[in-house]
């Protein structure tokens, strides 16, 4: 499973790589990281949209997670990649905006990795 994590916090990379080290080592998961929406869109070009899961933060400088989601949906109207949005606690406005744009799932900060692992393994 290919997972593209989009977050402007660079430390998220170390956290994911350490947290999912067993899955990565075993070849069950493959992580890629982008720190901006633009970078994520560039990286997506090299993927088969059906086999990738995008995990994106909402509050990012430049292109926000909501805009990224909209662009992904525009580019892939048929069989789009799965997108999980990470929302800040209590950010109901962005959550409903993402929902109306067709986000597949939501995670709330602070991230519960056990919950995330369960959702990813599904």
């Amino acid at each position: 499973m290919k997972i593209l994590v989009v977050d402007d916090e660079t430390d998220i990379k170390d956290l994911f790589l350490q947290k999912f080290r067993k899955e990565i080592r075993g070849g069950a998961m493959e992580f890629n990281f982008a720190t901006t929406g633009e970078e994520a869109l560039t990286l997506l070009k090299g993927y088969d949209p059906e086999s990738v899961l995008i995990l994106s933060d909402i509050n990012m400088p430049g292109m926000t997670g909501i805009e990224l989601l909209r662009k992904i949906r525009e580019k892939h109207p048929v069989s789009p990649p799965e997108v999980m949005m990470i929302t800040a606690y209590g950010d109901d406005a962005n959550r409903s905006a993402a929902m109306s744009l067709g986000a597949n799932d939501f995670l709330t900060k602070p991230l519960d990795f056990n919950e995330l692992k369960t959702k990813l393994l599904k």
Partner: peptide, 21 residues
């Protein structure tokens, strides 16, 4: 509060993952 929450999340997550390690 928002600004504090992000670094705090890292503190929590890294401490957890370090325990696992």
């Amino acid at each position: 509060a928002h600004e504090i929450q992000n670094p705090l999340n890292f503190v929590n997550n890294f401490s957890e993952v370090s325990t696992e390690l």
